[in-house]
Amino acid sequence: MIEFTVPDMTCGHCAGRIRSAVAEVDAKATVDIDIAGKRVRIESAKDEALFREALDDADYPPD
Rank of each mutant, 00 (worst) to 15 (best):
T30Y: 00
A15N: 09
A45K: 13
R41K: 09
D8L: 14
D56M: 11
R19S: 13
K46T: 01
E3L: 11
V31P: 03
A45F: 02
A27L: 09
D34V: 02
I2G: 00
D56R: 14
D34S: 12
V25F: 02
V40M: 06
E53L: 11
A21S: 14
A21C: 08
A58N: 12
A45W: 01
D34M: 06
D56C: 07
K46R: 15
A23F: 03
A36F: 01
I33M: 05
A27I: 12
R52N: 06
A54P: 07
G16I: 12
I2R: 04
G16Q: 02
K46W: 01
V40T: 10
T30L: 03
E48W: 09
V40R: 01
R39S: 09
D32M: 04
E48A: 15
F51H: 04
A36S: 14
D56Q: 13
E24L: 11
D57Q: 08
A36T: 11
L55R: 03
S20F: 09
R17D: 04
M1Q: 11
D57H: 08
G12K: 03
R17L: 10
R19Y: 06
A29I: 07
V25L: 04
L50I: 05
P7W: 09
A15M: 11
R39W: 01
P61L: 03
D59N: 15
A54Q: 02
D8T: 12
A27N: 09
T5P: 00
V25P: 02
M1H: 08
A54C: 05
L50C: 10
A15D: 03
K46E: 15
E53K: 15
K38I: 09
T30W: 00
A15C: 11
A45T: 15
Y60I: 05
D57T: 14
V25N: 01
D56I: 14
K46Y: 07
C14I: 04
A54K: 03
E3T: 15
V6E: 04
D32V: 13
I35R: 00
D26S: 07
L55M: 15
E53N: 08
A58H: 03
P62S: 13
D34G: 09
R19F: 02
H13M: 06
A58T: 07
G12S: 12
V6L: 04
R39T: 10
T5A: 11
S20Q: 13
A15T: 09
R41E: 12
R17H: 13
D47A: 14
Y60L: 05
V6R: 00
V6I: 15
C11H: 12
I42M: 10
A15R: 02
A49G: 11
R52L: 08
G16R: 03
R52Y: 04
D8V: 07
T5V: 15
D56T: 15
M9P: 07
A58W: 06
D63C: 01
G16C: 02
A54D: 06
V22S: 03
R41F: 01
S20E: 13
P62K: 02
R19V: 03
E24K: 15
V40L: 10
T5G: 00
A27P: 14
A23S: 13
V31I: 13
K38Y: 02
A23W: 07
S44D: 05
D34K: 08
S20K: 11
D59P: 00
A49S: 14
D63V: 11
